[in-house]
Design a binder for these strands. Sequence first.
DNA 1: CAGTGGTCTAGACCACACA
DNA 2: GTGTGGTCTAGACCACTGC
Lengths: 234, 234
Amino acid sequence: MLKYQQIANEIESYIERHHIQQGEKLPVLESLIKEFDTSKSTIVKALDVLEKKGLIFQVRGSGIFVRRKKRKNYINLLSNQGFQKDLEKFDITSEVLQLEVHKPSEIVAQQLHIDRDQDVYYVKRIRYIEGEILCLEESYYNKAVVPYLNKEIATTSIFQYIEDGLSLKVGFSDMYLQIGKLTDKEASYLKLNSGDPKLTMESIFYLTNGTPFDYSTVIYNYNQAQFYILGTGI
Amino acid sequence: MLKYQQIANEIESYIERHHIQQGEKLPVLESLIKEFDTSKSTIVKALDVLEKKGLIFQVRGSGIFVRRKKRKNYINLLSNQGFQKDLEKFDITSEVLQLEVHKPSEIVAQQLHIDRDQDVYYVKRIRYIEGEILCLEESYYNKAVVPYLNKEIATTSIFQYIEDGLSLKVGFSDMYLQIGKLTDKEASYLKLNSGDPKLTMESIFYLTNGTPFDYSTVIYNYNQAQFYILGTGI
DNA sequence: CAGTGGTCTAGACCACACA
DNA sequence: GTGTGGTCTAGACCACTGC
């Protein structure tokens, strides 16, 4: 484990354990350097990680302060973790409607940067949050990257399988959001009415080496679609 | 200007100028160090900035590659810039419906972390993108932080005024997203129908020192609400 | 195994907040 | 002015990629 990551984790769990509130001050840099017996740069890097995660903010000449969102029951929109990791407080389950290997459409082939004669896994799921319907998801995985999938994996967490089972590293993602009205078909899956609001989120996930491996379209139930973003100033 | 920020900007404009495409390789670290005549750490920091912005990705043992989103006409959901800066390709205008100083409601006072007897600016605007109605925005500014506002400022960019005119630094933000149906009133502002889909985005903006100064609720026209996020792996 | 990016150090110096 | 975080350096060493 990287030293700075280790330190970041320890500070994070320290904040968590001690229920430190928004605006409360953390020990000064000098103390942290001594505490963790490391160099200044390493501490600074660890704190940068936490700052980018939205857990703290640093004020020059003043100190390091805890940032803590106040609203519960909102889902973190960022985080590549395909949920799960981020929603460990929530109970997320999945019902697999379809799982098969086939050739991609033009659009899918383009998003995954493959030829139309290469195989993809197609997975259609309904995902539940605390027993309520959260979303309808249709995903395409490049079979050259994800050579095997089964219903059991798709019922739990595909991303966890990719990272732990296949030892692949998820790097980054492009996400596109749109608002619209549910079609008849979508509505029946989500047990809503045709014409009801929907949030559509298309995502392309890439490995750390830049290979796109997953193209997904997720349609959220507007009753459950509550998201938060901890912005960190671009 | 900070050296690493300067370098990041130069690399960014280099990518832009040369129309470098997704996946194309940038010069290796060693070259950049020589080119900018600086230390390795500084270059690394500059590249980190660009990576977090979603412009490049770095692969150990391989190289530095350009990342470039392909879809146009989507709005960047992140960036604290209250749009404008991010939408410089878009034409954003605002119509001010209301602008006044008053005492905050319980909720507003709480979000801005002030007492109910302190003044806030209340601004209600309709914002247009390329001449089309983009959203209805209601904002509350802590008057202790933003002592003066007028219609002209609100018609252009309030955030630019805060940063340039008042020399305040925007630090970070909490954002909450929800999907729902338009009320009669909202629909009439957006020239849509009651019951049509809406995306509601509540934001609290903080200065770099952690002071919340702006609480805004924005209701987007679902026909124009197209967003993208460049995820960078949490 | 050569090339490339990533981590870590020790320390100098700078910039800002706050009293 | 003191305390605190931020930048920058020069260099050692590590870890991954791809030939």
